[in-house]
Structures are given as C-alpha cells and as structure tokens.
Design a protein around this nucleic acid. Structure first.
Lengths: 345, 345
DNA sequence: CTGTTAGCGCCTTCAT
DNA sequence: ATGAAGGCGCTAACAG
C-alpha cells in the first residue's frame, strides 16, 4: 500500500497462526464465542494481529457487506460558526454508535462543486446525507432516486417533501424575543431581516409579524426592513430611524451580522442602548457574547440540530421505508445582555 | 444497497450494451481513445450509464487499486476558528486534484477517541494524515510505522523528526509586531503568553525575548507573564501593571483570548489605548476585527497553512521515500487597529 | 477493437 | 471446533 512489503491481511494472520481464514475472521469480528472457538485460540489470533500491526481494510469490508458506515455531511461552507457546531452535535451522537462516521464536505456555494461533492458521497456509498439546504439542485433528486435518506438542516426544502429535515422553530424563538421586549415596556418594535435569494427567511419574517400581532402591537411597514443581498444593514437602520415621526424603541434582528450593524448605527445616531432603543437578535454568535459587544439574543442550541440530524439519519437508515421525518427544535432561551434591560450574563 | 432492486454495476451496463465488462470499464475510466474503442461505442456506454444512474463503487475501486484517494485530517476540535480555515485551505488545493478528498475528524482532546479516530483513518487506508500536534501519543508511531505520510500543522512535534510539518514562523511574526511597537515609540514592552501543557508556545516566548534583544530593549521579568492553564489573563495583566515603578507602554500578546482580556483590564485600570498602552496580538481572530474591539494584530494567513499542508501531503504521497518535509509560512502582516497608532483598517 | 481472467481483502454459507 | 469456497465491483495484464 503505502509502500514496502505486502499488506498484512487476515490471510497473513491465519497462516502465521496455522488456522483457516474463517476462524481468524470470526475471532477478529468478536464472534469467537458464538462459533465456539476456544478462548485460547482467540487469544493467539489477537496477539498475532497486534504483533503484525494488522488493520482491517474497510474497502474490502464495505464491498463485502454492502455498507459503508459513512454518513455524508454537506455544507455550503464551513466558514460560518454554525456548521462547526452542528458537526459537533453530529459527532456527539455518531461517536457513540461506533458504527458510523461523518464524511464532511463543503462546496463554497459553487453548484458545479456541489454536484461533484455529492457524486463523491454517492461513490463512497454513504448511507445517508445530511446537508444544509441550497438553491434547488437536481443532484438532490439523484440522492432521493437512489433511496438514500436525505436530511436537511437549517432550512426546509418545501420543493422536496420526500426529504427529512431538522429545523429550529424560528417562529417560537422570535415570539420569545418579542415577548421579552414587550415585558420590558417596548411597544414600537422594528424588524431587521435579510433577503436571502431563495427566500429561506420568509419564515422568520412571518414569525415576527405574528409575534407582534399576538402582543397586540401593530407592524408599521417603515419599521419592517428586509435588507437586500449585498446591501448594508446600516442604510436600513438609518432609514428606520429617519424622519420626524415616532422612532422604534426596540429592534428585533434576524441575523447577528445585522444586529452588529444595528448596534453601531444606533449609537452613531446618538441613541443609547438599551435606554432609548433595545436590541435583540437571533443567532447567538460569539460576537454577541463578547463583553464589549454584548448583544442580547434568543439563543438556540445549534449542537442540538446536529444531534437530532444524526439521530434522524440513523433512524432512516434503520427503517428505510418509513416516510420523511421532520423535527423541530423548540428549545430557545432569551439571554439579556447589554442591549436589553436584564440582569446580564 | 439502500434497498430495493439490485445495484447497477459495470456488469449491468455491459449486459445492457451487449459488450464485455472490460470495454465498459475502459470507457468509464476515460481510456476509450487509448484503447481504440470507437467513439460511438463509448457514447452508447455513457448513455446507458446515465440512464441507469450508474455510480461507480469506490470501495471496489479502492480494493482493486490499493489506494483510497483519502487524506485524513485530524483536529483536536473543530470549534476554534483556525481549524476551519485550515480546512478551507486544504480544500482549495485538494479540489483541484480531483483525485483526493479530505476525511475530516476530531477527537475533542480525548486520548481514547484520538486513538479510535486514527484507527478509523487507517482502516480506510488514508494515504496521508494531516493533524494538529497533541500530547505525544503512541498512535502516531503506528502511523509512521505503516509508512503513512504524517504532516503536523500548528506546532511541530520535536519528538518525531520523521514527521513533516507546516508551521507559521512565529518568531518572525512576533518580531514584526514588536518592531511596529518600537516604531511607534514604545520602549517598555510587556509579553503575555500562555503555558499550554506541552510547552508548545515556548517558541513564541523565546521569539519575543529575541525580538526585544534585536531592538536593543531589555526584557524585564515582571513584564513577561506566562499565564498558566486555567488561570485568567486578567490577573496576569494586573500584576504586570501593579506597583509604583514604571509601567509597560505596550503589550504583546501571543493569543487573541489573552489580548481581549488585556484590553478589558487595561481599560478597567483607567489607562487609555493606545495613548497610554498599545496592544498587539498574534492570531487575527474575528473578535479582533470587530469594530468595537479592534485589536491590532500580526495577521498570519491560516488558509495558507492548509494549502501547504495539502501540497506537502500530496508531495509525500507522490514520493514516499523522500524524507520529512518541513515548511515554514513566513507571510505575516501587521494590521493596525484601535490599539496601536496606525492609519486603521 | 473486444473479451477472458485473475485477483484486491473480507464475510458467510456450507461442509467436514 | 475448523476449513474451503464463492463473490461483493472493479481494474489491468494478457490473449484473441
């Protein structure tokens, strides 16, 4: 393989031990007892294996057993904070199984690469694929056609009802955040959202409107800003606070980046946080947690998405004929930092 | 495999096309021309493959060719910022090859898991392993014994001269940082380091002393603080600034986390940055780049470590008998932010 | 131009 | 209690 002398295989061990391959195979797979192979023989086999630095060949095993023990994991990019945390959740679960490992890939928003990477996963015969939703790609269809369990995380893909998904209950989180603002006496709550090309965040936008309604507040269009892709949040915030009429006394942001922009802009306008304006955001990013930034957030446990996605994949592998599984992660926690009136944290 | 009808293999295609497996095999591997197979036949094979959703089986291919096309990548944790950026660099290079893919793993500082994961990589017959150095583990010896190229990143492992490595030239970076401080008129420069258990950062500590020496400054022990594992940087900084004697007029920090602590503490002490004290750090972490934090840094291109590590691995695979390759990444750039006197950025 | 053949290393049924 | 044998899907040397 790497070089040098020949590989050590089960045959090598069998020969060395003066046994048949079969016996060795059973011993090495921990089925010695089951086949009535004497303890002593097993012992000897293990010793020889150790001495010879035997390492089983997964390719051969996969080929023979028609399974790979791999779960494909496909992200657009690993650069953001959340993919990494999702992966940690995945590993929490997969490390326990002993049987499954993630095969992690990213495509950097490049459709050609995406296709290639999916092919890669298929060639390796991954038994399930966990991925973040992207623009509809035909390649996903290929996955389903081969009847490989597909689990979307982060956002659902409504065009693919056959696929499973594990998502945050964003509406619930938004309501919790808005409720906190209302508790703190805010009545003029603005919204700062982002217009991702595929409209993935529609759910958040709608959730905000619903939340206001539930609190008996009106949603003024002037205070409902959807920042376009490529546009800076700063402009949106300035617009929101411009004019001589009433100003918002709170801003709910759907993304941490926008919240950071809002923080800057609001202070630039000479307003004080949280006295004049409160600010709260989804996505409890590291930046929000830093003492000098301290943006209050509705914290959602990203690792839990990973854990549930792993479990979902395993469930689907175990019973391939069950329908799609859809899970919502309801957990969320409002964390008061500098930008809301809380006891801090 | 997943379920349902039988797998589509080359044999299926051969049968469907009324050809021999060999012919199909050559066509599918793009060696039709080389073997003088008529364009038309090739065309037909491709069509059938497409129609049948044929996906080659890597396990079979690996078994046959005795290579896996996988490069193992092992981190302690993916949670920090730099592993992810290293991976992006790796992918930059590997995506170009078409032939190699990373197989990414982490073990969360758990030696038992580390061992298991290395076993996992070996069973999959990765052709090289790229990993961040940890406490000396015997498992690494196993890797070398099997003559699998091993590339350390981040820190060298002096105990293993047979292993390759790709590292930053921290000394050079530190000198650049110190030089900038000196240019700005600082003469009483303190150092804030961290005592990682294995003493990996000794290199940085020494580099700082050297840098001072080169600038003709003395290194006062009071201003040379190595924060112990688990201790807070705050205490160290307070110590450094305590007493009635002279105070440092600049702090060089070896880690962004410490720099952040220093920033807080220095301001808590009623000192102004950068007027009273300048602050500069290694590790250009996101937190340093945020406008409200704005810690000046000596920026090192982490992605480049990934790229070079990938190239090193590929080189070693290509010529397994060459000795260890050691690469230093010299690039670094001093970035002035709020905590030094620069034109900002 | 195309086919036959012999494995790669492992699992597993069947025979002894 | 142990072994022989066949085959998973693919490649490549060797015939035709």
């Amino acid at each position: 393989m790497a070089s040098g002398k020949k590989q050590v295989t089960m045959a090598t061990i069998a020969e060395e031990a003066g046994l048949g391959r079969t016996t060795v195979g059973y011993v090495l797979n921990g089925k010695a007892a089951e086949r009535g192979i004497p303890e002593q023989t097993a012992q000897r086999v293990f010793e020889i294996a150790e001495r010879l630095d035997y390492v089983p060949n997964e390719a051969a095993r996969d080929l023979r057993t028609q399974r790979s023990g791999l779960i494909g994991v496909l992200f657009q990019s690993l650069g953001a904070e959340w993919p990494v945390r999702v992966i940690q959740g995945l590993q929490d679960v997969l490390f326990q199984t002993e049987d499954y490992h993630p095969l992690i890939t990213a495509h950097g928003h490049d459709p050609a690469l995406e296709e290639r990477e999916i092919q890669f996963l298929l060639r390796r015969r991954v038994e399930a694929i966990i991925c973040s939703a992207t623009a509809m790609s035909d390649t996903f269809r290929t996955i389903l056609k081969r009847r490989i369990p597909l689990v979307f995380i982060g956002h659902a893909m409504p065009e693919m009802p056959e696929a499973s998904s594990v998502l945050f209950d964003d509406r619930k989180a938004i309501k919790a955040g808005v409720r906190r603002l209302v508790e703190q006496g805010r009545r003029r709550i603005a919204y700062l959202g982002w217009d991702f090309p595929e409209g993935y965040f529609q759910n958040r936008h709608d959730g905000f409107r619903e939340a206001l309604e539930e609190s008996g507040l009106e949603c003024r269009e002037k205070w409902f800003e959807i920042v376009l892709h490529g546009e800076s949040p700063e402009a949106a915030v300035r617009r929101m606070f411009s004019g001589s009429g009433q100003r918002p006394d709170a801003v709910f942001s759907g993304l941490w980046r926008m919240a950071l922009g809002a923080l800057e802009t609001i202070e630039d306008l000479g307003l004080r946080l949280p006295e004049d304006v409160a600010l709260i955001t989804l996505e409890d990013h590291l930046a929000c947690r830093l003492k000098r930034i301290g943006i209050s957030t509705v914290h959602q446990p990203i690792e839990e998405i990973g854990r549930q996605a792993a479990r979902t994949a395993l469930d689907l592998i175990a019973s391939p004929h069950s329908g799609a599984i859809r899970r919502l992660i309801y957990d969320c926690e409002v964390i008061d930092r500098r930008t809301t009136i809380g006891q801090g944290r």
